[in-house]
Design a protein around this nucleic acid. Sequence first.
DNA 1: TTAATCATGTAACACGTTACATGATTGC
DNA 2: GCAATCATGTAACGTGTTACATGATTAA
Lengths: 185, 185
Amino acid sequence: MSLKHGILGLLNYGPMTGYELNKAFKDSLSFFWQAQTSQIYRELNNMERLGWLSSEQVIQTDKPNKRVYSLTEEGESELKNWLTDPEADVKNAMSVRSAFLMRVFFGGEMGNANAHKMLRAIRDECIAAITALGRVDGSISDYGEVVSDINKTKYWKLTALFGQSYYQAMLGWAEKAIAVSEEKE
Amino acid sequence: MSLKHGILGLLNYGPMTGYELNKAFKDSLSFFWQAQTSQIYRELNNMERLGWLSSEQVIQTDKPNKRVYSLTEEGESELKNWLTDPEADVKNAMSVRSAFLMRVFFGGEMGNANAHKMLRAIRDECIAAITALGRVDGSISDYGEVVSDINKTKYWKLTALFGQSYYQAMLGWAEKAIAVSEEKE
DNA sequence: TTAATCATGTAACACGTTACATGATTGC
DNA sequence: GCAATCATGTAACGTGTTACATGATTAA
């Protein structure tokens, strides 16, 4: 259910079109939740049907027409409920789903040279990801000036910090894994 | 595509029924890939249609009948190809999708007391997960005696080690996040 | 001036989740 | 002997992914 609530959260900052939401999603939430353009449009329809959103068509002559969405009161209270739900299943929300660990698991079937190659690719990606995330903090601060709410950027930065810890841990693991995969068989 | 390949990987150890595969999945792969019973049965059908598997019905009188699946040659080579594919998109396979970070991101909207409560729940789950994973190594060794292939258990253990690093990093992050959420506003 | 890409979406299909079904078997 | 659960699945629906459509605008 996170896609719906991600959209609610973004629209809570102000009305937007599907196109703008898509960009906002990519700029902010996509580090920990990837959504396709098509998914966003579909969810907007569903959510309007649920009464969480209202929309209005804007005719444009220079560009294709567009449809601007805003939260209804139901939408706002749905967002608040989701955020503060004491029954929220934290454990389940934390679970890992990782395609690359599936390959690691069967590493014994691919020959050590291949396993080794894969692990080095993982290590390299970790390094790239850490570098990329190093720049996020600054760009959140920039955005924060617009939003001008320190309480928001505080939590935004925590998600970026999570990313750094995550890839740092993965990097450490990858180095160890490379060493293990090199042990005489 | 990891579900199909997880099934291929398990069937590579020997023929099994859907039911047995389901258990094997839960015992080994479910830490990093959760699959529902119904998904496994559906995929078995699909994979048989693809020619990756063959199956044979076994009539039982004491229990419901069952259908035993085995890899075909196409299935085996599909598995090998997937494992050794040099084009495999490591970066994409590493990406995070985390419902709880979505909630953290919008933490500013839920009031600090709620945010704080959520972060403590996360910390507690990390501790529980680390404790649980502490036991995995031993159970892999047990299983390893059956499989009696040190090269396999080596990679199995690496995935468990990943889990430990992951939850350890998340624990560290959660402690920091709790501190941040307590800062005077 | 034509190829790329931006801006705005839609459609079809693959995959994941939840709920249900039915006959043993085991524990109290 | 009755309730729980094991053993074997099926059906319906919700979410994610891939591919396509169409008219500006920009870069070579």
